[in-house]
Amino acid sequence: MRQLFLFISLGVLCFGIYLWQFYDVPDSQIMINFYVSRFLAISGASSVLMNIFWSSSKKRKSEE
């Protein structure tokens, strides 16, 4: 389950970076692209971090 969550988070992060850096934005959509790309990048990055730290804390507990 956690792996699925990590996979989706990475997908969201990559899509956000793609929209931010590589997508050819039409003039009329500059503002919406600015918001959506950064929203996805922040959400994706924080989800990935949460997943990593959650996993490591579980591992530490089981080792103890």
């Binding site: 959400s43 924080s46 730290f53 804390s57």
Partner: peptide
């Protein structure tokens, strides 16, 4: 749930709130 995860979640919420406020404020245009 450990403190680090909670703080990342809180930080992400703050960042998203800041992004929303910045994007839709008159200054950002």
């Amino acid at each position: 749930m450990n403190k680090v995860v909670i703080s990342i979640f809180a930080f992400a919420l703050l960042a998203l709130g800041g992004l929303t406020a910045y994007t839709f404020s008159p200054l950002s245009k």
